[in-house]
Design a protein around this nucleic acid. Structure first.
Lengths: 225, 225
DNA sequence: AAACTATCTGAACGTCCGTATAAAAAGTCA
DNA sequence: TGACTTTTTATACGGACGTTCAGATAGTTT
């Protein structure tokens, strides 16, 4: 993989324009994101990524390194943004005073549904990419570690609201909430098939039902006192 | 793939013993089941299945056909058994008289948790295999059709209990229930990591929490009247 | 312009893949 | 036993894979 330029600012030329190589690098990562999202890690080929990015084969390695490097980079690239949205949502709820289970669930789910419904197709691809990665426990162990810190913050909130809950119960309800959330993005076709009607066009369209489901579920699992 | 024997009983010799080839065929399918369960379709190689089954390469094709044939056969082989367990559980609840959301949820979830916790490692592998397949919408379209008939039966039960619910809401809560169920089998390592303690050894150990979660969630989404 | 670095191209490498098949072996049955 | 079928072996094929790299090109700095 290309090494960071040594003695000057990393991604900028001296005149401040984005370096030519950095633009290509983003094209490669965007292409990889879309490919991984729609086909999964094993099924994607470097050549497919190159074709999608409209670059030649060697460029993918040059900017993205190995296939596994690419995968990790794509995942990590947007993780901070999503985390920040969730933390901001939580802070906003906290500032409003009295908190409920529903508020915490909302703060966790809505940012993800939001990016999955965004106009920007690249963010949608990332949302699908997460859904794919997170539902396969064993893609790469370090994938987990990227999202666990934020997960722990939300677990702590649930614990504040339900002091009597066991650690297993708290971890379980968060895991079930995440699974439910991801399935909305991953399985809209199935919902459409089972309901006999068209799928709701945006994940955000399921927001109310999803929040209801998770809130009701958590309140049933975690004893009120 | 081997053609069914023409003029005599399919899997038996004239003396009633199981035909030699049929035993091998089951070994191949068992091996494929374990491989697909742990690595997913794309990552599995025919050679790996052959090694696992302790047969040579050609035997896998001879008894299992193409890789896709193998995949479908493995999936279909046990579908009827699981469906029957669910229908039996539902019938039993129905026979007891008054039904609740919780009863229907229980009838759907418990047979799956049960086979995932069974001593038989082959059934456990199948449970993991399902978790993997179902969380990737696009493995093969016909996969869905295998489980949809039973899903519709349970949706109909929910509809009987909540006549006012919309088709979308019914399909959504079943999808979320399935996603939650599968995540218990697929993500036990994550629960352990988040809770700081060891994972509960059997999926059945999560039964109470899972049923609570789904019941609470469904009751929240589907208006009581 | 010359020296230098960053980026890109095109071709190649060795490996493993899924599949096919001829021939050997094992089993069955008259 | 000998004819016949079923099953297994061993090997091969063409293709696609991930990765590498020498050399061409473009851009920057002196």
């Amino acid at each position: 993989m290309r090494q960071p330029t040594s003695d000057k600012e990393n991604f900028r030329n001296t005149d401040g324009r984005i370096a030519r190589g950095e633009a290509t690098r983003q094209r490669v990562l965007d292409a990889a994101e879309r490919c991984f999202a729609s086909d999964g890690f094993e099924a994607v080929t470097i050549r497919q990524i190159a074709r999608t990015a409209e670059v030649t084969l060697g460029v993918v390695s040059f900017h993205g390194g190995s296939k596994e490097d690419l995968f990790k980079t794509v995942l990590a690239r947007r993780v901070a943004t999503l985390d920040d949205l969730r933390k901001a949502a939580l802070a906003e709820v906290r500032a409003r005073g009295e908190m409920t289970i529903r508020d915490v669930v909302d703060a966790y789910l809505t940012p993800y549904l939001d990016i999955a419904s965004r106009g920007d197709p690249q963010w949608r691809a990332y949302a699908q990419f997460i859904a794919r990665v997170a539902s396969n426990d064993d893609y790469f162990p370090e994938v987990r570690e990227l999202y666990d810190p934020t997960a722990r913050i939300f677990i702590a909130e649930f614990q504040r609201l339900r002091p009597g809950a066991s650690a297993e119960a708290l971890a379980t309800v968060l895991t079930l909430t995440v699974a439910s959330m991801l399935s909305i993005v991953a399985s809209r076709a199935r919902i459409a098939g089972l309901s006999g009607s068209d799928a709701i066009d945006q994940p955000m369209g399921y927001r109310a039902m999803l929040i209801d489901f998770c809130t009701g579920g958590i309140e049933m699992v975690l004893p009120s006192d």
